[in-house]
Amino acid sequence: MWDIIIPIITLIVGLVGGFFIGAFYLRKQLEKMQSDPEMLQKMAKQMGYNLNGKQMQKAQQMMKNQPGVRNQPGARKPGRRK
């Protein structure tokens, strides 16, 4: 019986742990991208876009205004709730 239960529990713990580690890593990458325009340009090129200066500024502004990213002044506006 334990031959079935332990692998299932291990799989569930691995999936949950992997999800949280992946989410943490993605959030850190997004925070880095906000302050590094070269990284943002590289990501855009990988997706098939070639951003000019005006588009780059607009993309950086949009990323700074995202409510899910931490440590950004003005990222969450007080008084707004969903």
Rank of each mutant, 00 (worst) to 15 (best):
Leu26Trp: 05
Asn65Pro: 08
Leu11Thr: 09
Gln72Trp: 10
Lys58Leu: 15
Asn65Ile: 04
Phe20Cys: 00
Lys64Tyr: 13
Gly48Trp: 07
Gly53Thr: 08
Leu40Gly: 00
Ile9Gln: 03
Lys82Pro: 15
Glu31Leu: 15
Thr10Gly: 06
Gln55Pro: 07
Tyr25Ser: 15
Phe20Trp: 08
Gln72Lys: 11
Ser35Tyr: 09
Ile4Val: 14
Lys28Pro: 07
Leu40Tyr: 04
Ile9Val: 13
Pro78Arg: 07
Met62Asn: 11
Asp3Met: 12
Asp3His: 12
Ile6Pro: 01
Pro73Asp: 04
Lys64Met: 12
Arg81Cys: 08
Met33Trp: 07
Ile12Val: 10
Gln34Leu: 15
Gln55Lys: 08
Met62Trp: 13
Lys64Pro: 08
Asp36Leu: 02
Val13Ser: 01
Ile5Thr: 06
Lys77Phe: 14
Pro37Glu: 09
Lys28Leu: 13
Gly22Pro: 01
Met1Trp: 11
Val16Ala: 07
Trp2Ser: 01
Gly68Ser: 05
Gly79His: 07
Tyr49His: 12
Asp3Phe: 15
Pro78Gly: 00
Pro73Gln: 00
Glu31Gln: 14
Phe20Ser: 01
Leu40Ser: 05
Arg80Glu: 14
Met63Val: 05
Lys64His: 12
Lys82His: 14
Pro37Val: 10
Asn50Phe: 12
Arg70Val: 05
Arg27Thr: 13
Lys45Ala: 10
Met39Leu: 13
Ala59Arg: 03
Gly18Ser: 04
Gln55Trp: 05
Asp36Ala: 06
Asn50Gly: 13
Gly18Arg: 02
Ile9Phe: 02
Met1Ser: 12
Arg80Asp: 10
Ile5Met: 05
Arg80Ala: 10
Gly74Leu: 10
Val16His: 02
Val69His: 09
Gln61Pro: 05
Leu40Asn: 01
Leu30Trp: 03
Gly18Glu: 03
Asn65Val: 04
Gln46Glu: 12
Lys82Met: 14
Gln72Asn: 08
Trp2Met: 02
Leu15Asn: 02
